[in-house]
Computed example of a mutant assay.
Amino acid sequence: MTTSGFNDFFDLKDKHVLITGAGGGIGQALITAFHAAGAIISGADQHLVSMEPLPLANRLVFDLADRTEVHEVVRDFIKTYGTPDVLINNAGFTRGETLDDVDDEVWEREIAINLNGVFHVTAPVVNAMSERGSGNVVFISSVNGLSYFGNPAYSAAKAGLISYVKALAVERGRYGIRANAICPGSVRTPAWDHRLQGKPELVEKLLPHYPLGRMVTPQEVAQATLFLASSAASGITGTALAVDAGLTAGNLRFINEILAGGN
């Protein structure tokens, strides 16, 4: 497909796209994908330095756990630059791997960042989109929102995002709003570094759980997000699309170790 044909297929040329978590591994892949589709991209992150080298029209800085700051920055952004055509809620964070790691502080911070903060970004943008009569929101949720793979507070927040997607799809569809979620499996980004420090063998232990035998790449997450954000997916809303190398399709390790006798 030519560049022109690519842009025509997705119909994102010169559309304004706001991407949170822009400085992270998935965020940078999202920027690359939407830039290739001809979009005008604004990025948001907690730290300006992580966005400085990126091809962004605007850079927003806020802490998702700070509701007042989020409200002020998003409100001023809309007032100054207008309502984005597409909002990609990508930012996320987790450190509480199991219930034993989760106390009041961990729970409240992970819910504040992964669920409440996303709401505080989304609500004013969707209100402005509704007034205009068009808009598209894609949330980067997780397979943790579909089933349990650890990280209990993060999982609760990501499941909440999927419910929020459905609420937006049902109640805001009449205003031309589409809302969908991408649910990645394990993605090899810097977010994995804290797990692999001193335990590089974790990746080899992880792979047998995935039917494709590998982790998902940031580019694969970005491509699926690009599709849902584009006019190519104009009839799709309220969905949660797993981009997970087959993890949620079934229990491959159970098949191999129990039914097939280790073959």
Score class of each variant (00 low, 15 high):
Gly38His: 00
Leu196Trp: 00
Ala232Pro: 05
Gln46Asn: 11
Lys166Thr: 14
Ser230Ala: 05
Gly82Trp: 01
Asn151Cys: 13
Ala39Val: 06
Asp101Ser: 09
Gly92Asn: 07
Glu201Ala: 13
Tyr148Ala: 15
Val165Pro: 02
Asn127Cys: 10
Ala191Gln: 15
Leu99Ile: 14
Leu226Asp: 05
Arg214Tyr: 05
Pro190Asn: 05
Pro184Arg: 08
Leu247Phe: 01
Thr80Arg: 12
Val73Asp: 04
Met215Gln: 05
Ile255Ala: 15
Pro211His: 01
Asn58Trp: 09
Thr94His: 14
His120Leu: 05
Val17Gln: 09
Ala128Lys: 09
Gly135His: 03
Ala232Lys: 04
Val165Gln: 02
Thr217Cys: 03
Val125Gln: 03
Gly145Trp: 07
Ile31Val: 08
Phe254Tyr: 14
Val243Ala: 06
Asn180Leu: 05
Ala91His: 07
Phe149Ala: 08
Leu228Pro: 00
Arg59Glu: 06
Ser141Trp: 01
Ser186Phe: 07
Met215Ile: 03
Gly25Ile: 00
Gly176Arg: 05
Val216Pro: 01
Glu201Asp: 12
Thr94Cys: 12
Arg67Lys: 14
Phe10His: 07
Ala229Phe: 06
Val70Asn: 01
Thr217Ala: 03
Phe254Cys: 13
Ala232Thr: 06
His47Gln: 12
His35Trp: 10
Phe119Pro: 01
Val74Ala: 07
Met129Trp: 05
Gly92Glu: 02
Ala169Lys: 13
Phe10Pro: 08
Asp76Tyr: 02
Ile258Ser: 12
Gly135Ser: 03
Val125Trp: 03
Gly96Val: 10
Gly238Asn: 07
Ala233Glu: 02
Gly21Ser: 00
Glu201Gly: 13
Gly238Asp: 05
Ala22Arg: 00
Thr189Pro: 03
Asp244Pro: 00
Leu168Gln: 04
Arg172Tyr: 13
Tyr148Gln: 14
Phe34Asn: 02
Phe139Thr: 08
Arg95Cys: 10
Leu48His: 11
Asn7Thr: 14
Leu226Asn: 05
Asn263Glu: 15
Met215Thr: 11
Ser147Asn: 13
Gly24Ala: 11
Ser130Gln: 11
Phe6His: 11
Glu108Met: 12
Ala57Pro: 06
Ala157His: 00
Leu54Asn: 02
Glu171Val: 10
Gly160Cys: 10
Ala91Leu: 06
Leu99Arg: 02
Ala245Tyr: 02
Val73Leu: 00
Ala191Leu: 15
Leu241Ser: 00
Val243Asn: 01
Arg214Glu: 09
Gly25Trp: 01
Leu30Tyr: 00
Leu161Asn: 02
Leu99Val: 15
Phe77Asp: 10
Arg67Asn: 12
Tyr154Met: 06
Ala22Asn: 04
Gly173Pro: 03
Glu131Asn: 10
Asn180Gly: 04
Leu207Glu: 02
Val126Cys: 08
Arg214Gln: 09
Glu204Ala: 15
Asn89Leu: 08
Ile140Ala: 00
Phe93Glu: 09
Asp101Val: 11
Thr80Lys: 10
Glu220Met: 07
Ser50Leu: 09
Glu69Tyr: 04
Asp100Glu: 15
